[in-house]
Design a protein around this nucleic acid. Structure first.
Length: 803
RNA sequence: GGGCGCAUAGCUCAGCGGGAGAGCGCCCGCUUCACACGCGGGAGGUCCCUGGUUCGAUCCCAGGUGCGCCCACCA
């Protein structure tokens, strides 16, 4: 064993060994309690990023801990086909060849996606392995697997039969690049500099005018009304009258609607139902026509008359010129506001009316809301639980159709007579008229529609498989904040609807890892840090440690310092075991006799409890902090130093006990740092199995006759001596330990006077507090008692120093 | 505009009613037979501001300031 721990080969070797020996494998076993984590399936085209790395570190730590506790663990891996995202990647490939998907046609394009995936996709699991993630890789699932597709169709047909899936013409978010609708959750908003134009609409049959403000002049030709707030005194008399829309010179009514903001612009809103969500809602309620003047390509269409074929910008300029000529321009002002963009291509979203498939949420979400309110499913931290409930309560009907080619095609067929047939597999004839001329709906489903089934479709559902029986409902899920509405909530409602039970009990919403400068990690900003590079440099164990240590707050800045801390911990542990494992090693048995031996076993037990408490509460940062202090301060700096004389003297009991202590330390560290601990474990003569499946220490009761505070006096004396040369008198075992640990460090710096001075100040402080009657009478008894004990100890130490 | 969160040592962050802490960085001393990627010691802080509660507030409450993330149909 060399003195520097080198993780490279060791980590890779254990990852291979664990997997080959089947130690990640999960099989149904009703005799054991289960622990099931359906890990979020990454995009099939994806690469490991810091969010994945943190997610894996958190989940795998819990998984390994539970496995050591003897639970039947299923840690489920797999991929998501990620509709629009994957299609985007392959279309970019095609673009390099100067082709579009339309050049290939749908079938050839789909074949091309599969081919691309065969060559370049599904590579992320090897990176998951490098994170040490103990997923049952034999069970890898893909949301486009035949069985999974069957599950998705079953889900759709079920919801349709209940009347919860319907088709309707509504305003939707249209991406003119991808030529598809998008849900609200697939948009990003960004501030842009725009111009707000104030345009006068003359009142027909009379004097006066109404001025409206708009940033989209081109949509004027689609205006069907002007709306004002019903309680706006400025316009009260005009409601019911008509105004003339500029350029098209069409007469439209002035209507009253509460959705109009009185404070914005002039308080008058031009109503364009075809191209604005609010206008659409107002239009529907007032029974207005819904002309669309912008086509799916983002250009003006035939409805726009002589503007047809122009871009919106060009059309806007023509209209502006017309308005100027007619003296109807009031003013133009710069205006910065947020616009909606496609999250994949950042094209500006066109709101337009389109015939789409929808999933009604009102009934579907009720059981999920109940489960959340009753806390049968719990989000952590608590603030996210409230957010999850609120966002589910307000969830609108879900646009589930996408005009893409990559995804689950809707199981819907149209016959020549216009009837709709919905079936799990290709129907021979129309369910209504028997027509055999059937055309399948071309749209595919929103990726999240299939993802909602992940916890049970991965187990063979809709078939009643042994796996489904054994591993549903699951236990835990981990995810990022922005995924709550897209995925977590939908898994809960799908699980309750189809399985009659929740998919998991706890959801950990983990931190967002920001770049070291506090900005978002993103490739486009150049602020991303590749976890694989971090692993290459520091090792997987150190990276896991660092990520866990960072994970305490909602948003964390990535810090190499914390990863480095983890690396030092692996190195320290490595060297401590070199000390304890050198020489003749033949026995591992806790036979504590000396004070420090009892003490370290008590410390290990105390930290075991602290660790369990922290992990149960998903408080990872305090957990790894406790492990660090245990290893460095307690195990190495005190215990190992204290036993050195006996160790060098060849005392068999000391060594056997030391190895037993090391064994327990390795077990506590293993969930966080699996590789270095398994490597050291392999040198222990007593080992009967791999550390990964060794029993958690709680199964081995330790005789704790000496408390964790047994070395307090020695440690205080050592601190005083090192700080000032003050020699507190110690006797017997305490003196022996003091000399073993402290003396080799050389002579102290200062002199005893400084220590005496410090102790006097402490005595004065404690006396002051205990002399305060309000404190003694109102503070908790244990606090007062604690102060008394401190005072007594300070006085004793002062006496010992002759102060 | 809404929600959530954060402001503590030069940096990254713990602590969250009774002594202000860790890691890194910095300074000093140590080639001590596990580790110099180490050991020991040290310097360094109106615990963001203003009020309130309390015998006592970095910690609880209210308000303010600054920052971050998520969400959002004021055209």
């Amino acid at each position: 064993m060399e003195s520097l721990y080198r993780p490279e080969g060791i980590e890779e070797r254990w990852q291979r060994t664990w997997e080959e020996e089947g130690l990640y494998a999960a099989e149904p076993d009703p005799s054991r309690e289960r622990f099931v984590v359906a890990h979020p399936p990454p995009n099939v085209t994806g690469e490991l990023h810091m969010g994945h790395a943190l997610q894996l570190a958190l989940a795998d730590t819990l998984v390994r801990w539970q496995r050591m506790q003897g639970k039947n663990v299923l840690f489920q891996p797999g991929y998501d086909h990620a509709g629009i995202s994957t299609q985007n990647v392959v279309e970019k490939e095609l673009a390099k060849e100067g082709k579009t998907r339309h050049d290939l046609g749908r079938e050839a394009f789909e074949a091309r996606v599969w081919e691309w995936l065969r060559l370049y996709g599904r590579t992320i699991m090897s990176q998951f392995r490098r994170m040490g993630a103990s997923l049952d890789y034999r069970r890898e699932r893909f949301t486009m697997d035949d069985d999974y597709v069957r599950a998705v169709m079953h889900f759709f047909v079920h919801l349709y039969a209940k009347g919860w899936i319907y088709r309707d013409n509504r305003i939707i978010n249209w991406c003119p690049f991808h030529m598809t609708s998008l849900s609200d959750l697939e948009l990003v908003h960004r501030d842009v500099d725009d111009v707000l134009t104030y345009v006068r609409y003359p009142v027909a049959d009379g004097d006066g005018q109404v001025t409206i403000a708009t940033v989209r002049l081109a949509t004027i030709v689609g205006d069907v009304a002007v709306a004002v707030h019903p309680e706006d005194d400025r316009y009260r008399d005009l409601v019911g009258k008509e105004v003339v829309v500029p350029y098209v010179e069409r007469r439209v009514s002035i209507i009253a609607d509460e959705r109009v903001e009185r404070d914005f612009g002039t308080g008058a809103l031009k109503v364009t139902p075809g191209h604005d969500p609010i206008d659409f809602a107002i239009g529907r309620d007032h029974g207005l026509p819904e002309p669309m003047v912008i086509g799916p390509d983002g250009r003006m269409n035939e409805e726009a008359g002589d503007l047809a074929g122009l871009t919106q910008e060009e059309a806007g300029e023509r209209i502006l010129a017309w308005i100027r000529e007619h003296g109807q321009l009031e003013k133009r002002e710069n205006y910065r506001h947020a616009v909606a963009l496609c999250e994949r291509c950042e094209s500006r979203i066109e709101p337009l009316i389109s015939l789409q498939w929808w999933c009604a949420m009102d009934d579907l979400k009720q059981p999920a809301l109940e489960a959340l309110r009753e806390r049968r499913v719990r989000y952590h931290p608590e603030s996210q639980h409230r957010f999850a409930i609120e966002s589910l309560e307000s969830a609108p009907d879900w646009n589930i159709s996408r005009q893409l080619w990559w995804g689950h095609q809707l199981p819907v067929w149209y016959c020549a007579n216009g009837h709709v047939t919905v079936a799990e597999s290709d129907p021979d004839a129309c369910a209504e008229c028997g027509s055999t001329e059937l055309n399948r709906e071309e749209d595919v489903l929103d990726t999240w529609f299939s993802a909602a089934l992940w916890p049970f479709a991965t187990l063979g559902w809709p078939d009643q498989t042994p796996d489904l029986e054994a591993f549903y409902p699951g236990t835990l899920n981990t995810t990022a904040r922005e995924i709550i509405r897209l995925w977590e909530n939908r898994m809960i409602l799908a699980g309750l609807e189809m399985m009659g039970d929740i998919p998991f009990e706890d959801v950990i919403i983990h931190s967002t890892v920001l770049a070291p400068d506090g900005r978002r990690m993103s490739k486009s900003l150049g602020t991303g840090i590749d976890p694989v590079e971090v692993i290459d440099k520091y090792g997987t164990d150190a990276t896991r440690y660092g990520l866990l240590k960072m994970s305490s707050t909602q948003d964390v800045r990535f810090s190499y310092g914390v990863i480095e801390e983890g690396r030092k911990l692996t190195n320290k542990l490595w060297n401590a075991s070199r000390l304890l494992l050198s020489g003749d090693v033949d026995e591992v048995a806790a036979r504590p006799k000396a004070l420090e031996e009892h003490w370290i076993l008590a410390r290990l037990e105390a930290v075991r409890q602290e660790l369990e408490q922290n992990l149960q509460e998903f408080s990872f940062a305090p957990a790894v902090g406790a492990l660090y202090r245990l290893t460095f301060d307690d195990f190495c700096d005190w215990y190992a130093e204290a036993i050195k004389p006996q160790l060098y003297a060849g005392d068999a009991d000391t060594r056997a006990t030391a190895l037993a202590a090391l064994e327990r330390l390795l077990k506590l560290l293993h969930p966080v740092m699996p590789h270095v601990t398994e490597e050291i474990w392999s040198y222990l003569p007593s080992r009967q199995s791999r550390l990964i499946v060794a029993p958690w220490p709680s199964a081995e009761p330790v005789d704790v006759t000496v408390g964790p505070d047994a070395l307090d006096r020695v440690q205080a004396a050592a601190a005083a001596y090192r700080r000032s040369g003050a020699l507190v008198e110690l006797e017997g075992e305490e003196r022996r330990i003091f000399e073993a640990v402290v003396r080799p460090q050389g002579e102290p710096n200062g002199n005893a006077d400084a220590e005496i001075e410090r102790l006097r100040k402490e005595v004065a402080r404690a006396e002051g507090m205990l002399g305060n009657e309000r404190f003694v009478s109102s503070a908790p008894a244990d606090v007062v008692e604690g102060e008394r004990e401190k005072l007594a100890r300070y006085r004793r130490e002062l006496d010992a120093l002759g102060g």
